[in-house]
């Protein structure tokens, strides 16, 4: 097992290099000149000077190598707009996004698994149909629309919860911060919840139709014990789906964060795109990509643990 984890860790290096290359290329292939966007209509010689000072006049491969070198040493550069260190911007934004992502995962996964197990066990009953229909609604519903509806109902109409921002409390674990997180959490959890519910339901139904469940019953096992076996068998598949959804949530949602004015990576990314703020843009996308790589690595490792049939070589 240890060897397997080590080899999987080694594999992530080429993936990370590839990701960084794509991130760099995407940002530089986008039309528009960062400096003219920031500085507006100014003297061309001044722009050329600035370009030289940021290194944007060098050939792209060289720029990439320089950037990669500084990234490797933890130096992500400074924002073209605010002059703030990119790392600093990212750390506070990522903390906000991760907080929401973890809460939305906890809510979405627990409700999704419970509903999916329930529907899978009561396959064909009206309860199953209600769960399945809600899951389809959850997947098809745009989450920013749900976000707006939540704001209208809970903040505007009933005035129960704050609509925007993260609050002014210094700690993220305060009641005020939590209140600000409730609505975004619900909006973000809808899609993962629906997807996990559908996967769990399909998985449980498939497992229940397998002969080994009958064989377990023939051994005199109690129904709760059999449910344990069913859960254990559904785990690898559901785990894989949850991993992807979790990685998605960690990436933050530009739309939902914009609706709630949540200071997370989605908002940072959105602003950086409008500002052509290349250092911030590159840093953010790289961070999100690395979230995906790491989450996938963790999921892979968890899956080999959960499913003995997955090869460890």
């Amino acid at each position: 097992m240890f060897q397997y984890i080590l080899s999987r860790l080694l594999y992530t290096f080429p993936i990370a290099i590839g990701v960084s290359l794509i991130v760099f290329a995407l940002v530089h292939l986008a039309p528009g000149d960062p400096l003219s966007a920031v500085m507006g209509e100014v003297d061309q010689t001044m722009i050329a000077e600035m370009r030289a000072s940021f290194g944007y006049d060098k050939p792209l491969p060289l720029q990439y190598m320089t950037w990669l070198g500084s990234v490797a040493s933890g130096e992500l550069g400074y924002s073209l707009r605010s002059g703030q260190a990119v790392l600093e911007i990212l750390l506070s934004a990522a903390a906000n996004t991760i907080a929401l992502g973890v809460l939305a995962s906890l809510l979405g996964f627990s409700v999704g698994i419970a509903a999916g197990m329930f529907a899978g066990y009561r396959n064909g009953t009206w309860l199953d149909k209600v769960v399945s229909a809600s899951a389809i609604a959850g997947v098809s519903m745009p989450h920013y629309w749900l976000a707006i509806v939540l704001v209208i109902v809970f903040s505007v109409e009933w005035g129960l919860l704050p609509a925007v921002g993260a609050g002014s409390a210094s700690s993220m674990f305060s009641w005020e911060s939590f209140q600000h997180m409730i609505l975004p959490t619900i909006a973000l959890s809808a899609i993962p919840c629906a997807i996990v519910a559908r996967t769990t339901r399909a998985c449980v139904m498939e497992i229940l139709s397998m002969e080994f469940v009958e064989a377990l019953r023939a051994r005199g096992l109690s129904e709760s014990r059999i449910t344990l076996h069913v859960t254990r068998n559904a785990l690898p598949t559901v785990l894989a789906v949850m991993g992807l959804q979790f990685a998605n949530l960690l990436g933050g949602s530009i739309l939902v964060e914009t609706v709630f004015a949540w200071p997370g990576t989605g908002s940072v990314l959105n602003q950086a795109i409008f500002d052509r703020d290349i250092p911030v843009l590159q840093g953010t996308i790289l961070l999100l990509a690395m979230f995906f790589v790491v989450t996938n690595l963790v999921i892979d490792i968890l899956q080999t643990w959960a499913d003995p049939r997955v090869s460890r070589h």
């Binding site: 397998m210 002969e211 080994f212 009958e214 064989a215 377990l216 023939a218 076996h229 254990r232 068998n233 785990l235 690898p236 959960a306 499913d307 003995p308 049939r309």
Partner: peptide
């Protein structure tokens, strides 16, 4: 049972 592959739980030893 007839088919030992499907009648044993695959994820338990």
């Amino acid at each position: 049972f007839q088919e030992p592959m499907t009648a044993l739980d695959p994820v338990f030893t």
